[in-house]
Design a binder for these strands. Structure first.
Lengths: 214, 214
DNA sequence: TGCATTAGTGAAAAATAATAACAAAATTCC
DNA sequence: GGAATTTTGTTATTATTTTTCACTAATGCA
């Protein structure tokens, strides 16, 4: 399939899962079939082939996929190779958790700044970084050419922070505050509302028969 | 529409958003039209009516919806009224963040237990609760009839914890560890992988034209 | 060479979602 | 009181997306 930039959302959601599945495989193994990968990822094997075909022609007919190639392409497609930098705004428990979270660094995201406006938090050291006041954010973002802003503040200041991040020329925002942020044309916003997740889960609590939303 | 238990996933995902929108409204206002709510939630107004119709006949033609009724029904449908209890396993930064997170209590989820097997954490007090060893989990779950287990442990022990939670007769799991948990027939599992979220965001980083996955 | 295997993909089918459009019910205004 | 207006509930339609089937094309191996 032509690599024309148009991977369906449902597929994009599965790419990180495939990547994760590959990590589970014994290092000595060098190849994997769509059938086996499908099994690990708990999807149909035609789905796997279809999904991977969006990334280009990666496999070999009659043989399967070479794991290292697959991993590289997945990482490339997900933009995990270019090493995006991120800043975290709000260093309460959630912000700290995110700062400590190994998964980010591992997958090519470097957290280069922590910001908060609480004087008790400023200058505290967390995960090797010093917490700075939000007024210094612009500076850091320019210096490191930061692409991602992570909002872990209380809801009521989240929009204000988002606006500031946009002013800093950030390209995407990952929002953990429980509010709907205003959409902006050229900034991708992705929200994770922890209690919303719990609410959705809760909906399915008394309905064990139904399939849960993914 | 008959209230026959079958709300489409896309709708279930919007219900918490509607609930959130209602919270933004001035307390004195008692009614709201589908058009206005649509505007707040940033969706089509026909969509709002369609979505709400799954909950029963809540509005009044020519008038609109009574906010308090709407809120009650949304909460009821989402199961936020029955007061589910939850336990959190793993009290690192993320677990602590979740324990402190006001949103849960507010929306009807009571966190009744914190568990960890790190001796340095046991007996620590967090958000008014004392951290206990995982061996005591069964006990707490029975005592409080806990319905939800929240996993905030490192990935490598997550499956083991999930199994233990299932043994404790929990009904749903909200998993924050970056692993795919094995599916079990009568336990709903919902996973939030923070770095997966970031990876999906990252995919859209160089493709600002595309619409991001919801 | 022939058989077994497995990727890539067109096309069909299925599932899901969104929207338009309008009758029915309620209110307001004359 | 009745016409005009508003706004819901719902049917029907359309659109979109996703999944799966089924087959062809490579490849390896005996």
């Amino acid at each position: 399939m032509k690599n024309n930039n148009k991977i369906p959302p449902a597929t994009v959601k599965r790419l990180p899962i495939y990547l994760q599945c590959l990590e589970l495989i014994d290092e000595k193994t060098i190849g994997i079939s769509s059938k086996k990968l499908a099994e690990l990822a708990k999807v149909n094997d035609a789905q796997v082939r279809r999904d991977l075909s969006y990334l280009g022609t990666l496999g070999t007919r009659g043989v399967g996929y070479e794991i290292s190639t697959l991993r590289n392409q997945l990482q490339l497609e997900l933009g995990l190779v270019e090493g995006w930098s991120a800043v975290i705004v709000g260093v309460g428990n959630l912000g700290s958790a995110l700062a400590h979270y190994g998964g980010f660094q591992e997958r090519g995201f470097g957290v280069v700044g922590l910001f908060d406006d609480d004087p008790r938090k400023i200058n505290k050291q967390i995960a090797g970084l010093v917490v700075k006041p939000i007024s210094e954010m612009q500076n850091t973002c320019e210096k490191y050419n930061v692409a991602i802003g992570i909002i872990a503040t209380p809801g009521k200041v989240a929009q204000e922070i988002a606006d500031k991040l946009i002013e800093c020329n950030i390209k995407s925002i990952l929002n953990f505050a429980p509010v709907l942020l205003k959409n902006t044309a050229d900034v991708q916003i992705r929200s994770v509302d922890l209690s919303q997740e719990l609410q959705i889960l809760s909906y399915y609590l008394d309905r064990p028969v139904l399939k849960a939303v993914k």
